[in-house]
Every structure is written in C-alpha cells, then in structure tokens.
Design a protein around this nucleic acid. Structure first.
Lengths: 348, 348
DNA sequence: TTTAGCACTATTCATACCTGAGTGCTAACA
DNA sequence: TGTTAGCACTCAGGTATGAATAGTGCTAAA
C-alpha cells in the first residue's frame, strides 16, 4: 500500500506526463504538488515508487514516467472522473437531435459524437440480447430477374439481400418459399434458423425447385448478416495523430484490428465486461500492435433489449479522468435514447 | 525534342529510380544502359536533360532523379506497357469467378482484385449512363411501425430506406403513395424525379396526409442515394507503405480525399477522361496532399450502359509500364464481365 | 563528339565535446 | 526518524569536426 503522499505524487506524475508527454522530474513535481516538500524528498519517494514498479525512467538520469503497473494502480485507486461540462453535454444533446429510423443509426451516431468530442477513435456496438428471433420475412420482386429478400428480427433490425435469377421467376413459387420460411423459421431464434436452413429446409425446398443452392446461399448470407455483430467505428484517422511515424506496420495492424469485427469482438465482447466503465491497457491486451494504446469501455443497459458497448481507443497517455467522466454520462444518455426509441416503436 | 540517346537515358533513370528509390549517377547508368558510352558522356547528356527540366538533383553533387516534367515526358513518349503474365491473368479470372447479384458487387470486386494485385490503392466507379431513369418503386410494410421503401433504377441499381412511423400506418394510404409515385415519377430521369419531389409531389401528397415532411425527407435521401456515384476503394492501407512517416497530416488528408466522394469525383470524373489509360501526376492535380502521388485512370465502356472508371493511386514512383499494361487488359476484362451480366439479366 | 582526369561539393557516418535536466547519495538538520 | 541542502555523476541532445564516399562540372586531349 502506498502512503497518501506517494499517491499524490503518482497521480501528479500521471497528470503531468499525459499533459506534456515528457518524463517528470523532481523539481517540476515540487512546483506542482499541492503541498510543499523539497525536491530531494520527492526524489526519495520516487525512488520508492520505482522500486515497487509504478514508475520508471527512460534512461538512467531522466525524469520518471508511469509504468504499466503504475497506470493500473492509478486507474484502480487514484483517478478522479471529472463531470461533463455544461456546453459539452449540450452539444451531445444537439448532435443526437434528429429522428432515427433504425437503432443502428443511433449507435452509429454515438460513435461519431464520441470520436469528435474526444479526438480518439470510438467504437460502438448495438444492444445485444441473448436470443434474437426472426420475426419477419418478405420477398419483393423488383423486376423480371431480380428479387429482394428482407428479414426482420426481434431486435428491430432489418436486413436485405438482392437475388438475381437467370430465367423469369414463378410468382407462385415465391409465395411457396415465403410460406415455408414463415412456417418453419419465423419465430425461431436466429442460431436455430441458421441451423435449420442447412438441415430441414433444403429437403423441403427441393420438392418445389430444381436447384436450391443459389437460394440457400443467399438466405444463409442474409441470416448471417442479421446475426453478426455490427461494430461502428468512427475517427479511425485520429489514430494517426498518436502513431509514431517510423513504424507504419504498427499503424497498419492497428487499422486492420479495428476494421475486423472478429478482432473487435475479442476486445469488446460485452459478456466479459463488468458493468460500468473499465480501462484496459495495451500491455494487458496481449496484442503487440496495441501495446502503446489503451481502451476505455463502458457498457450501457437497455433492459430486456440487452446490453451494448461503447469504447474509446487511444494512446496509453489518454486523459482518463475526463474520458471516464464523459463515458459515464454518455452511457446513460445513450441508454435513455434507445429506451425512448424502443418505447415508441417497439411492438414485440 | 530529345535525341534517341537522351530518351534512353531518361527512360533508364526512371526505371532505376523506381526500382531503387535512389538518385541515379553517371557510373550506374553506364553499366545499365544498352549501349556503351563513358560516364563523362552520360554526365554531359544528363546536364542537358537537367537544363531542359527533365532531370533534377537532390543536392549539388548528387545523382539525378526525374522531375515532374521528366515523368510527364516519360509517360507521354517513353513508357512501354508490358503485357500481363499468364499467371496474373489467370488469377484475375479466378478472383472474379462467382455469381454476382448486383453490378456494384462486380465493381467492388474489381477494386479488391486491383489493389491486391498491385499493392496500391484501387478506386473503381460503376458505369454511368447519362440519363438514369426511375424504373420501380415499392413500399413494403415490415411491422406495425416500420416500412421499407425500395427504388429500382434503369441501370439495375436498387436502393432502400427504412421509415419508421409513430402511429400505426394506413395501408390504403401507402397504396395511394405508391400509386402517386408510379404515376408521376416512375419512368422519369432521376434528376427530374428529385426536382419534382420538391415541386409537384408535396402538393399532391398533402391532399392525403397531414404531415408530409418526414416522408419527403426519406424519399429525397433515397433518390439521392440512387443518384450519387458510388466509388469503391480498396487497399487504402497500402498508402501507408509509401507515406513518409514524419508528416502524418499529409497521410490524413490523403485518407480523407479517398473517402469523400466529392473529392473523388473531381479526380475521376469519367467525362474529363479521354478514352483509354491516362496517368496524372500529383503535381498536375493541384492538391497539396497528392503532390507525391500519382493516379493511373482507365475507363471502360459497356455500350449504352455507359462508361466507368478504374484507377490506381500510388506514389509518383510507381511501376508505370507494368501497371499500364495491367489496367489495359483489366478494363477490357471488366467490360466483358459487365456486358455479360447485363446480357443475362437486363430487361430494359 | 567522346573521353580521361582532376578539382570540387554534399551527404553520411563516426567521434568528440558541451550543456542542461535530472538523479542518487551523503551529511547535516529539526 | 523524516526532511533538506549540496554535490558528484549520468545521459540525451545539440553542435562541431573530420574522413570516406559518391557524385558532379570542366578542361584538355584523342
């Protein structure tokens, strides 16, 4: 356990280092600390903090910077979230202020707002309820050769695929297909739907059609779209502000991580997150490309519609106190707006 | 006009410089040129080439690199497109090899193939015919509060928007709306449609509806989607391979250019392009961010369905001879596949 | 017109030096 | 026992210096 004075010193080192980016020396600290002790005393304390592993030097005679452990301790014990200033709160409200026709639009807008506000990279994920069901299926003929297949799911998500057929299609056949899907698949959970699509459905379809492959492929991709988690990423380019220019390959792997939902799932899986806000340092994430970055995640809760995640990705030296404060209010605001959306339109 | 020997020297300087990235000296040239003259002679010739502005030095006693003018001359007179090797041609064929349900998918796949093949950034634009007409309009109820509006255009493009209404909607009203659109707008060119949407349509609609704003907004955005050119960009991250690391803001503006269709339109507007393949150097493009890059554009022709553009964006020191050869064959291949697609499904 | 030769120039690399910011340690002090 | 002043020490970073290298331009001869 650290003494109060050591706490204060560590907190101040983090603050100054995030502000200036430079290692912090004993004299600087002496002038910034809220109490007065000599620089020699501070040197003694810092030597101790270094011994326990919370501070480190960039070279033998440099000032100190917080180590990964030091950041961890800071985040766990010392950080003091600041509350969101009035004008920012108002701006969030304004930026949200339009009518949304889909949940995805709200989630997407959240990412936009957060990345603009922070100039970091924002990643948001819509609410996930454990069991999404298929609630609607339509086939709409578009012209002589094209159809649109549309599905609606219990989370109010809509997906569509276009399907092109060589020869003119048979209206009664389409009706048949719609009936089969309505009969067998609508009402089922999505994973069940996908499973049945490959077990039960082919046999039934082949009673009416000669070649079922193309149709099944199309429906498979359609259901998979509905099942896949849709991450919205905004402010990717902000990463370039903090990237160090002489290792472009690092930047590349960073970009490819945030553009692959597989990688994002590993980072942001809502099930592994406790409630509330959590900061994970790059060194704790096991990914080499992320080692100089950290991720602040917050989840939000929309009752029986599930939980979602909002996250900020930035360099380890982010302004945690402000950002944690911001996310703390943002998650509530977002949940409120989503609940509002559901309450107005939901008919499940 | 340059002598044959000067041509050969300039061509060789370009070749060596694109291979090595280093300024080219007289001794190196002496060993690489297909004929033998002493390094002193080469120095004399290079001094002339510098005088007319085709070569320049990085410093007083360095080797020469091609100037922008030199590149221009090289591209206009000296470049010799190489033909595409068998295995590459085959790979293109394989990478194209699946069934496409929409033209956009083919165009998108083109960008993928090109960027993977070249490791530069590929930008593709679908065929644009001068007058696209609205050929179909549907409204599909999804559930108690949501509708999907779908439009089809004469270029076989399909767009949709989801529209959410507060209260339960009136099926007969929807029918009315569909009838009005079919009556007044379907068959018209898209720009006319957009114009009428704001002149004639509001008055007609307001006979049946209390509030028309939301509906009109939705339809406006839908028609605009159909009208806007859709650029497909692939291999953005390749830009990082050639970016110089200590000016991140340059990289940022580069990225924002290729992500804004407005900027892309300026660069790739098919109407300003002659037929065939054209290389434009960054210095000729007037954009500061592009000054170290160049764009190779090629258009392709699908008869009365219009013309489209494929382009490669990379550093000024690209391997033009190979790339021009590649695009030369690719544009034909792409056109062939599009014509094939149209011939199978088109019913216009 | 071409070439050999030479004087000249700029980059690059290593080496050396200096300064400033910072440390650790010791001895004195409260 | 904790705090402080003082001092010797260290290292990064900037600047100067010199040698090696790769190139040039120019002149005079072939």
């Amino acid at each position: 356990m650290l003494s109060q004075r050591q706490d204060a010193i560590l907190r101040e080192v983090v603050r100054i280092f995030t502000d200036t980016g430079q290692p912090v020396g004993s004299k600087t600290l002496m002038n910034e600390l809220p109490f007065h002790v000599s620089s020699a005393t501070i040197r003694n304390e810092m030597a101790m903090l270094e011994e326990v592993g919370y501070l480190e030097k960039t070279h033998l005679s440099s000032g100190r910077i917080p180590s990964a452990m030091g950041y961890r301790y800071y985040l766990d014990h010392l950080v003091q979230p600041t509350s969101v200033p009035q004008d920012i709160a108002q701006r969030i409200d304004e930026d949200f202020g339009k009518t949304y026709h889909q949940i995805g639009d709200i989630i997407e807008q959240s990412a936009k707002i957060l990345s603009h506000l922070t100039s970091y990279t924002a990643i948001t994920l819509g609410p996930e309820s454990s069991s999404i069901r298929l609630t609607g299926f339509r086939i709409v003929p578009l012209n002589a050769h094209q159809l649109m297949a549309i599905i609606v799911t219990s989370d109010n998500n809509v997906e569509n695929n276009i399907y092109t057929v060589d020869d003119d299609f048979d209206t009664s056949l389409i009706e048949k297909i719609v009936n089969i899907v309505n009969d067998k698949l609508v009402g089922q959970p999505l994973n069940k739907v996908l499973q049945m699509l490959h077990s039960d459905v082919p046999a039934i379809l082949s009673e009416y059609m000669y070649s079922t492959d193309g149709l099944l492929d199309m429906m498979d991709s359609l259901f998979k779209k509905a099942e896949s988690e849709k991450y919205y990423v905004d402010g990717q380019l902000n990463l370039l502000n903090y990237a160090n220019g002489d290792d472009m390959s690092e930047v590349q792997s960073l970009f490819s991580i945030i553009n692959q939902s597989n990688d994002l799932r590993k980072l942001l899986d809502p099930s592994i997150l406790d409630d509330g806000i959590k900061v994970r340092l790059g060194s704790e994430l096991g990914s080499d490309a992320l080692k100089n970055y950290s991720i602040i995640t917050a989840n939000y809760d929309v009752g029986h519609h599930g939980k979602g995640v909002i996250a900020l990705l930035g360099p380890t030296t982010m302004h945690y106190s402000q950002l944690i404060g911001l996310l703390g209010e943002f998650r509530v605001e977002l949940a409120k707006r989503l609940i509002d959306y559901y309450s107005r339109y939901d008919d499940s």
